[in-house]
């Protein structure tokens, strides 16, 4: 309960601050007064600030878990439970935030390297490392098979899009060899 209340307060504060930042940025838009280019951004930011304040207040007054739900029909409740089944399966384990950060870094490097080393190499490296990172624990990772799959899939995507759908993905060092 206390945890969801804290979460509610953090989310509410984030909503409030987002609105405030957006308001400050909107104030820098050159305008003529009245309904100009800054009118809607200002209105939106005021809305965000108000909603953030309401959410903060709601979270402060009662735990998030007890907040009113839109629908309380038994079937709807059952639907909610079913929809969350999958997440619940994974949810029994603590979220692996290290894995999230590493995955984001891998994606970042993939995008960063795409132009200089070309799509095939960048995607191969990304796929290899990402699949290895998420491979089931307790089982040996089939490194060779994984590397082969990463290269084959990346090359297949590259050639399919380049020659099949005329999409010129960055070829990097392979450029002189391609027509």
């Amino acid at each position: 309960m206390a945890k969801s209340r804290t979460k509610g307060l953090v989310v509410g504060a984030t909503m409030f601050v987002t609105g405030l930042l957006y308001f400050l940025l909107a104030s820098r838009i050159p305008g003529s007064g009245g309904v100009d280019a800054s009118f809607f951004p200002h209105m939106l930011s005021i809305g965000m600030i108000l909603l953030g304040a309401i959410h903060l207040l709601q979270s402060w007054r009662q735990p998030v878990a007890a907040m009113p739900q839109e629908m309380s029909d038994d079937i709807v409740e059952q639907a909610r439970a079913t929809a969350e089944d999958e997440d619940a399966l994974a949810g029994e384990m603590a979220p692996d935030y290290l894995s999230v950060v590493l995955s984001l870094l891998l994606i970042g490097f993939f995008v960063l390297l795409m132009r200089p080393i070309g799509f095939i190499f960048a995607a191969s490296i990304y796929l290899f490392l990402q699949i290895a990172l998420l491979s089931p624990s307790g089982k040996p990772i089939p490194w060779f098979r994984l590397a082969l799959m990463a290269v084959v899939v990346s090359a297949a995507i590259f050639f399919l899009f380049r020659y099949g759908f005329s999409l010129m993905l960055p070829a990097g060092p392979l450029t002189p060899f391609l027509s």
């Binding site: 979220p95 894995s99 999230v100 089931p136």
Partner: peptide, 14 residues
């Protein structure tokens, strides 16, 4: 994709 990463290697056992 990020949600799958959150489940980590243990999640891939499911």
């Amino acid at each position: 994709v990020i949600k799958v990463a959150e489940a980590g290697r243990a999640g891939s056992n499911i």
